[in-house]
Design a binder for these strands. Structure first.
Length: 273
DNA sequence: CGTAGCGCCTGCCGGC
DNA sequence: TGCCGGCAGGCGCTAC
């Protein structure tokens, strides 16, 4: 379940194996992902290209070459791994970028919610990227801007911070965790929270994402192995998936509710804001 | 415009 | 034992 820390960990893991490498060819085994893979275009635009950089925007992994950008989204269940030539194909191995060296960047995604696309134009102008909000760990993401955006939104604060136009990279798990840390009830209407609450929330989002990325970083070596499980789940989640269990802070039973079709968890005593 | 709800897809788990 | 329903969830789409 890749959230932003797992995507960032993936980028850091694969980057050293890709930058400055020459692409030999690509291999597509399953075109039907979130959007159909345009195999012909990918083959044309990526063959013989040198990888210039590997970066991330929101939860999109960006592999830059001179003809454009290969964009990979892990969706719900996707993983990217660097594997050696001749590594056996596993179920759901949908897409390979094969390097001249023989090393392969391999995309596996059981649920096929992920995406692989090629964008030739400036990414910031592309419809998929132009409306994205600030990166949560950048200076453009501030408590004040978050507060100001919230004034015209009456929806629950949890749904508000999960909106990619507001801030990118806050998925279901970290939305619950951030709100717990900031002592904010997940159903509180966004526009009704004061600036002080947004200061706490902003700080919580940054601290929790940073901590999770730091944890993920400890398993970077796994990206060159067969089991590429990033370790961010080992981070101690305070409320997520802990319905009925004791709050680590006050011992009250954690409650589970549905907000916008998403499972949500909170402590009814600690989160009164 | 903001908001709510749906669907994509497979694997897993609990209940019968 | 095997089947089936429900859930997991990022994100774009549609409808109001």
């Amino acid at each position: 379940m890749p959230e932003l820390p797992e995507v960032e960990t993936t980028v850091r893991g694969i980057k050293p194996h890709l930058v400055s490498k020459v692409i030999s060819h690509i291999k597509v085994r399953q075109e039907q992902l979130r959007w159909p893979i345009e195999t012909k275009i990918l083959k044309q635009k990526l063959s013989a290209q040198v990888i210039k950089a590997v970066t991330r925007r929101a939860k999109y992994i960006l592999i830059h070459v001179s003809t454009g950008t290969l964009v990979i989204h892990l969706g719900m269940s996707g993983t990217l791994k660097i594997v050696a030539a001749n590594t056996p194909i596993l179920k759901h191995d949908h897409f390979d970028v094969v390097m001249l060296s023989g090393q392969i960047l391999r995309f596996n995604d059981p649920r096929r919610f992920g995406a692989v696309l090629f964008i030739e134009d400036d990414l910031d102008l592309h419809p998929r990227f132009q409306h994205l909000g600030p990166e949560p760990l950048s200076k453009t993401f501030t408590a004040k801007s978050l507060y100001e955006k919230s004034r015209k939104h009456r929806l629950p604060i949890k749904s508000f911070i999960m909106n990619a136009k507001v801030v990118v990279g806050v998925g279901n798990i970290y939305a619950s965790e951030s709100l717990f840390s900031a002592n904010i009830h997940p159903l509180h209407p966004a526009h009704a929270l004061p600036l002080e609450a947004y200061k706490k929330l902003h700080a919580a989002i940054q601290a929790i994402l940073k901590a999770a990325i730091k944890k993920g970083g400890t398993t970077l070596k796994d990206f060159y192995q067969s089991d590429g499980k990033p370790g961010y789940f080992s981070q101690e989640l305070q409320v997520y998936d802990r319905a009925g269990m004791s709050c680590f802070c006050c011992n009250t039973a954690i409650e589970a509710i549905r907000i916008g079709q998403r499972s949500s968890y909170y402590c009814p005593v600690c989160q009164k804001l």
